[in-house]
Design a protein around this nucleic acid. Structure first.
Lengths: 219, 219
DNA sequence: ATGTTCTATGAAAACTTGTTCACTGTCAAG
DNA sequence: CTTGACAGTGAACAAGTTTTCATAGAACAT
């Protein structure tokens, strides 16, 4: 594979970044503007070079249409493996609290170890603005397995007003439980996502700690 | 959300499929040809409808440029519910870098929001000691669906020496991809966890960014 | 019946975009 | 010094593409 020049690499990276951000390719003039070229032909040449060097495929005549060419190499005997961290486009973000464990099922007081693994939890940027107090909970029990939330998973709880169908962290009997919120008129129920469990748990008074927005699993 | 007609749904699906297959959006004429319309204006009307119904965003004037709008559920009725944060056993932890997105399979640029949500990612305390440089990547594409890693998920990558069978983030042609690592003697292959994909990808040169240890999903 | 909305045709306008042509300057190799 | 590859300017062209305009039938509610 022929080496790319610095500018070719920059243009290729910009194109990828543009796709990642906008979900569509930049036009030649978009690239021209980005790199302050005075002529579209400067870009045109670089795109030709990128195609000649085999890293980019242009679709002739089509606008904003490209493909990144995957590596096509024959089968050779040995493989060299290098290790490398993330690119420098990595961004650091704030951390979130880990609040302990949560019972998803019948109240389960067999708090396993007392030593809970410290965990960081993810929060989307958009929701982070509205939910600075998001926190994470380790899930115990199996009441939510039909929602693909299993024992040992970690759920990220974000404050907010839960809608019908949301999975919420609710305080029942001083114990935080994970259930789906069901609204029927003015009545509110909690529902376990497990066929073996009672369908609806009626509630008169309910303390919601937040909405489960994400779930994290070990691979 | 307003309901989509059958044809609107079909067109939207075709557009998504086109992007998934070709990595760029179809033109109106492409859609016209696919659905045998006699006029481009038939497509134009449907695209307008899709945008009005809030599932598609057009970029005025730009060719082959669209965004898929993530589905949002309405229903914001009020409920008599108290809110309460996590207990005071909460612990704060360090944050982790979010390094962008990762291609798992054919590049799939239908990133729903267009804007990559900044995310924090969880790391277990035990692994954090050995992996201070862990980072997170948003997954695109569907090459790992058989491993239950789907488009839109976020994987947490931790440095280390991958074993046979580990899911790794590997740099191929400047593009980070998510594949299962297969070692056969001195040869190394990358394998997609999707029956529709080629079995093994031979590699001569391989840059490993780390091992996927966890996966995070939006609920 | 009547109007409205949805879907579609057919043609053309208007804009976007890839592409080509002619020309200039730089830099290293021969 | 000359040659050739490389990177770029400036302008223009041709094709691709979106968008508008005018028109019309079918479904449907008023």
């Amino acid at each position: 594979m022929e080496e790319l020049t610095k500018k070719q690499r920059a243009i290729l990276d910009y194109m990828k970044a543009h796709v990642a951000e906008h979900t569509y390719w930049p036009s030649i003039r978009d690239i021209q503007a980005k790199f302050r070229f005075a002529s579209t032909n400067a870009v045109f040449g670089h795109l030709q070079a990128l195609e000649r060097k085999g890293v980019l495929q242009r679709i002739p005549g089509a606008a904003r249409a490209y493909k990144i060419v995957p590596e096509v190499l024959g089968d050779t005997s040995e493989t060299v493996i290098r290790y490398e961290g993330p690119g420098d486009d990595a961004i650091a973000f704030e951390s979130v609290k880990f609040a302990g464990s949560i019972a998803a099922g019948f109240p389960d007081y067999t708090e396993s170890s007392g030593v809970l693994d410290a965990m960081q939890v993810p929060i989307s940027a958009s929701s982070r603005r509205r939910a600075p107090e998001a926190f994470a909970l380790r899930v115990r029990g199996d009441s939510m397995i039909d929602a693909d939330i299993n024992d040992g998973d970690t759920v990220i709880i974000e404050p907010g007003t839960p809608k019908h169908g949301d999975i919420v962290a609710a305080l029942i009997d001083g114990e935080t439980t994970l259930k789906r919120l069901i609204k029927q008129g003015s009545k509110v129920y909690l529902k376990a996502e497990n066929q073996n469990y009672p369908d609806l748990i009626p509630t008169t008074s309910l303390t919601i700690q937040g909405i489960a927005k994400s779930v994290m699993k070990r691979i």
